[in-house]
Design a protein around this nucleic acid. Structure first.
Length: 793
RNA sequence: GGGCGAGUGGCGGAAUUGGUAGACGCGCUGGACUUAAAAUCCAGUGACUGAAUAAGUCGUGCGGGUUCAAUUCCCGCCUUGCCCACCA
């Protein structure tokens, strides 16, 4: 009888749903296992085969953990605020809330057709007031602790999306969303002080188990460096310039100073003679987009202010320049330039014919390029003869003793720009009162709900569309009850996803974001999977929020995720990224309809190493279908298993268990295939076949359940016990042992696996084929028990 | 320019405390079944020499090295993917 996958898959999905088979227990004495998949953004495009890959992979793990007796939490929800939905609303007039609802319904149906064992009773949605009430609540806690503040600042501005962008959202100087070149614009923005957590975000990585490349990318993004801050007095003036440098040891090599064009001292330091040039340069850099600045990076530009600074160590006069290769947002926005030992300074000095003074001994001629390596200090007075490391210690002490500077550290990480001038996001719960100023909305008035509107178009002024809704904007001050206005900025996409893993633990709680006892039981997340594209930002932001919540005593662990893994992308058959515009998208629904969910699941697990990018191959699906058909049609049952089958079963148990643990799903599937190929030939007992069905069930749950039932098991496969590997049951009577002569395999002998060296030598000496190689006397035997024999003649 | 990773049959890929390279799957070739096709089943399938299921040579990006033995370890290159790029 042919396997009716459509009927069977529907049948089991209904049973699982009706009986709530995969619901996690909150008050359990069993050991917990929390596995988390990044919740999808319910876009209008529907589910992607990439979603299927990661959701299935963690489903295999979740199902396996249940079978070994763990209380598993494997939840799903929707990260539904965001620009695409808002843009869709602008285009079609459909309210974002309606569009979101529709998209979620589609995603949900698609995911459910795959038989993923999510606990649907915990489904969450970041756009529901019951959810974002708590996102706003967390913001208020940050605000209370002084970690949220408003500041006028130049932001990256996308003139196409009409939205402020965080540094992280500017890619190649372009808007991450639409690709339009980003500009600079001054706006009042909310910021979160993530920089205050920079050190802990680096150091606590030692306590978690992430892939090394993920840890590295977190560390690089934070970009901590150690150096010194040094004050340089300005000649004929009371002003002083503070610089940050990682190489204070080279201070005697300073030949000029550079301020960023935006630096606050520029105006005071500019002489009348230079004023015109300086103003022109400032204007030029202001209008330059980031892209132009990047593209022109090779060519250094700058202008002299007309002033000089005094080098504190030797009183030399140093001309003060402004140049846009010095960034206003990093360090102090000013540098001491040491062209002999810094590539950028060298380039600048060459172009403007400034002095180059060598202070580190090197073999190379300094005229060709800057020397940035180690060596002994020269031309540096009291530092002469010291190695770089020692010299840094010495100069730091000198600076401190003389009150001129001190050692310091710096980060590339900036505070997180948290404002967005858009409609479809969480309103920031702050009001502005004419009398009382900036007032947080009291917690009992949360959520500050998004008002229903007809128009979502962002304004050209940069204000949020919410600013146009006077009914909503005008409110009363929670403190004095006088007239007040609401904050009209909304939160970025990253807000709701920064804490969703906590909400799954207690999704219906209306007293707090989650119950403390439940949090203590479930946290931290044991396994977190997501794409590489989120390993810097989302991971950093959510770790920051969790640490903050830990500090105020409302979550039990400092780190939210015990381990983090990432999946590779699925590329289209042409080797390109799947995209609508290329027309090479594979729709998972089509595969499910044609072959069934189990085939799609097993195929995606078999397609290649989980952490690597793979190319979709429609032919590969046929192979998986053949495999599952063979399992369905299997009927070569025998009363008693052969020794060979008993051993093979144990080896398969061992391999599949190990591979699931290590996320080597492709080789787990291939060992299941090998086992089936074997029992088709030799036959196996029904018990052995049932054990095999348990091994298969995480990958092809519907088929495994159906066959399990067919062979009379009342209990579902998903409620069985995972078989235990028993090494003692493996009995191998003979092996093929290769005999190597001078490094080449010349013969293979069938022998017992525990043959001794003496016995195998005897066999070799009497072997006909080997005689011609053994005419000259063997010098050396290397015998690896149970593996091989190597002979040197 | 910097950081991390990857290069194995016609294709996706397997194998690393150094120990039979090419598991498993696709594709391909031949055969069985069929009026025919699809599906299914059986056999074969790294390259080369060879009538050969005799024997042998070569073979894991390229060039060296260590070793009885290297896809695996070391040195030097090439190619390619991803991430970050004026961070003082």
């Amino acid at each position: 009888m042919k396997y009716n996958f459509k009927k069977t898959e529907k049948k089991w999905q209904k049973i699982w749903r009706d009986e709530q088979t995969f619901q996690s227990e909150d008050n359990s004495t069993r050991e917990k296992y929390y596995c988390l998949i990044e919740f999808p953004y319910p876009s209008g495009d529907g589910l992607h085969v990439g979603h299927v890959r990661s959701h299935t992979a963690l489903d295999v793990i979740a199902r396996h953990k249940r079978l070994v007796g763990k209380n598993v939490l494997y939840p799903i929800g929707w990260d539904a605020f965001g620009l695409p939905t808002e843009n869709y609303a602008i285009k079609t007039g459909i309210h974002p809330a309606d569009a979101t609802r529709q998209n979620i319904a589609i995603f949900k149906k698609q995911i459910q057709s795959l038989g993923i064992s999510f606990d649907w009773s915990r489904e969450i949605n970041t756009t529901e007031p019951e959810y974002y009430k708590w996102t706003q609540w967390i913001f208020l806690q940050l605000y209370k602790k002084g970690l949220a503040y408003k500041k006028a600042m130049p932001i990256n501005w996308c003139p196409s999306c009409k939205i402020g962008l965080a540094n992280e959202e500017v890619v190649d100087a372009k808007c991450e969303r639409c690709g339009h070149v980003a500009e600079r614009k001054n706006l009042n923005q909310w910021l979160l002080k993530i920089t205050q957590y920079a050190d802990r975000l680096i150091e606590d990585l030692e306590t978690v188990d992430y892939l090394d490349k993920i840890k590295t990318s977190q560390i690089n993004w934070i970009g901590r460096s150690y150096g010194a801050e040094i004050d340089f007095l300005v000649d004929n003036s009371n002003e002083k310039i503070r610089v940050y440098t990682t190489r204070p040891d080279t201070i005697f090599g300073t030949t000029y100073m550079v301020l960023s064009p935006e630096h606050e001292l520029v105006e005071a330091l500019t002489t009348d003679k230079q004023r015109k040039a300086v103003l022109a340069y400032q204007k030029l850099t202001r209008t330059k987009s980031d892209l132009e600045r990047t593209e022109l990076a090779k060519e250094k530009t700058g202008v002299w202010t007309g002033s000089y600074a005094v080098n504190p160590v030797n009183k030399e006069l140093l001309p003060i320049w402004i140049a846009d290769y010095v960034l206003s947002t990093y360090g102090t926005g000013a540098i001491m330039a040491v062209p002999a030992h810094d590539e950028r300074d060298f380039e600048f000095a060459k172009k403007f014919k400034l002095d180059i003074k060598e202070v580190i001994q090197s073999e190379q001629g300094i005229l060709a390029k800057a020397y940035i390596g180690d060596g002994k200090l020269i031309n540096s007075d009291f530092l002469n003869g010291l190695e770089v490391e020692k010299a840094i210690e010495a100069i730091n002490k000198w600076l401190e003793d003389n009150g001129i500077g001190k050692s310091a550290k710096n980060y590339k990480l900036r505070d997180w720009i948290f404002s967005r001038q858009h409609y479809w996001g969480e309103p920031i719960p702050i009001v502005f009162c004419e009398k009382c100023g900036e007032i947080p909305v009291p917690e009992d008035q949360l959520p500050v709900a998004l008002p229903m509107v007809e128009k979502y178009e962002p304004t050209d002024t940069g204000e949020s569309p919410l600013a146009d809704i006077s009914d909503w904007v005008n409110t009363t001050c929670p403190k004095c009850s006088g007239p007040a206005k609401r904050e009209t900025d909304t939160m970025p996409n990253w807000a709701g996803s920064s804490w969703y893993f906590l909400r799954y633990i207690d999704p219906k709680n209306d007293q707090s974001f989650a119950d403390q006892d439940k949090l203590k039981y479930w946290m931290p997340v044991d396994l977190y999977n997501g794409g590489m594209e989120h390993t810097t930002l989302h991971l950093l932001y959510s770790r920051f929020w969790n640490k903050f919540l830990y500090d105020i005593g409302v979550v039990p662990t400092s780190e939210p995720y015990q381990s983090r893994v990432s999946h590779g992308m699925i590329l289209a058959p042409d080797g390109e990224k799947m995209s609508k515009s290329r027309g090479n998208v594979i729709n998972p629904d089509v595969i499910v309809t044609e072959y069934g969910a189990d085939v799609l699941r097993v195929y995606e697990m078999f397609i290649g190493p989980y952490d690597q990018a793979v190319i979709w191959d429609t032919n590969g699906i046929k192979g998986v279908k053949r495999f599952l058909d063979k399992v369905w049609k299997f009927e070569n049952f025998v009363a008693k298993d052969s020794e060979k089958i008993i051993s093979s079963l144990q080896q398969t148990i061992h391999k599949v268990t190990k591979d699931i643990d290590q996320m080597h799903f492709n080789t787990a599937v291939s060992s299941l295939m090998e086992f089936v190929n074997e029992i088709i030939i030799t036959g196996c007992s029904q018990d052995t076949f049932k054990t095999f069905l348990i091994l298969l069930s995480p990958f092809a749950p519907h088929l495994a359940e159906e066959l399990n039932q067919k062979y009379g098991n009342k209990q579902y496969v998903c409620q069985e016990k995972w078989p235990k590997f028993d090494k003692n049951k493996i009995k191998i009577s003979t092996i093929e042992m290769p005999i190597m002569i001078n490094g080449k395999v010349r013969q293979r002998l069938i022998v017992s696996p525990d043959i001794t060296e003496e016995e195998i030598k005897k066999l070799v000496m009497s072997d006909e084929k080997l005689q011609k190689y053994l005419i000259s006397k063997p010098k050396k035997f290397i015998f690896v028990s149970g593996k091989m024999l190597s002979i040197v003649v």
